[in-house]
């Protein structure tokens, strides 16, 4: 992967990370947010997005033929967004360690209709996985 592709991936990942923090603050997803106060999430998110754009466009002239073609651009955007989500989930799980031990409310039909990120209003991603494993262990007995 060329330098431009790596820079583009980083740009998308940082921008996505900022967007996820803003969205988590809007949606009340405490398990995804780095901060306990929504305002801090909004400010961090805006700064991350602006920072990503400024870095990407100020460091080099981007109006030149690039090695990244259309479908590659789609792939890099998807990869960047997924990387941002994984990093966000991991970092918030570490920052909100105590929330990981919060018991979650399972959906009556968890197997066929999981709650997904709605669970992250109560706990972190690590906490959600931990709750599921604990319930399966109890059901197995």
């Amino acid at each position: 992967m060329g330098t431009t592709a790596i820079e583009y991936f980083s740009f998308v990942a940082i921008g996505s990370l900022g967007t996820i923090q803003i969205a988590a603050a809007c949606a009340g997803l405490k398990g995804l947010s780095f901060f306990s106060k929504p305002l801090a999430g909004y400010i961090f998110g805006v700064l991350a997005i602006i920072g990503a754009f400024c870095w990407f466009f100020a460091t080099e002239n981007r109006n030149t033929p690039s090695e990244i073609e259309g479908m590659q651009q789609v792939g890099i955007i998807l990869a960047g967004a997924m990387a941002a989500y994984v990093i966000t989930a991991a970092v918030s799980s570490l920052l909100k360690y105590r929330l990981s031990f919060q018991e979650t409310t399972p959906h009556p039909r968890q197997q066929t209709n999981p709650r997904g990120i709605e669970t992250l209003k109560e706990t972190t991603l690590i906490g959600a996985i931990r709750s599921i494993l604990k319930r399966k262990k109890h059901e197995g007995r």
Partner: peptide, 27 residues
């Protein structure tokens, strides 16, 4: 020159779609 760029507006559009995907409190 910034607007005609291959990256500026496509990434902005994608970030808005990402915000729509995650950002509503009601399931």
């Amino acid at each position: 020159r910034l607007m005609v760029n291959d990256f500026f507006i496509p990434v902005t559009i994608c970030l808005i779609l990402l915000g729509l995907w995650v950002g509503h409190p009601d399931p």
